[in-house]
């Protein structure tokens, strides 16, 4: 059953990535683009976890955790940059 369900989930998540990418291209504002990048990060985590399940490997956990950490930091830094025009005051 899992061999059928995992590809379905992978394709659902890929569609989610595609939709977030359309928002990233369309904008219309910088804040929307940052939000789209944040969503892409979280979708990437879901994809990596699913891929780890598909390959039956526990090694992908670290990659997902690091993407979560970097995604949060980059979102905060970008938002701060467009608010203040500077990152470190």
């Amino acid at each position: 059953m899992l061999t059928i369900v995992i590809p379905i989930c992978l394709s659902l998540c890929s569609v989610a990535v595609l939709l977030a990418f359309i928002r990233l291209v369309r904008g219309p504002h910088q804040s929307d683009r940052i939000l789209a990048l944040d969503t892409l990060n979280i979708n990437a985590i879901a994809l990596i976890v699913l891929f780890g399940l598909w390959l039956d490997s526990n090694l992908f956990f670290e990659a997902a955790l690091i993407i979560a950490l970097m995604g949060f930091i980059s979102t905060v830094v970008l938002a701060k940059f467009i608010t203040r025009g500077d990152i470190i005051e």
Partner: peptide, 12 residues
């Protein structure tokens, strides 16, 4: 996966 997709649909 469904909720992930719903979140992206909402974004769009």
């Amino acid at each position: 996966s469904g909720f992930t997709l719903v979140g992206s649909i909402g974004l769009l």
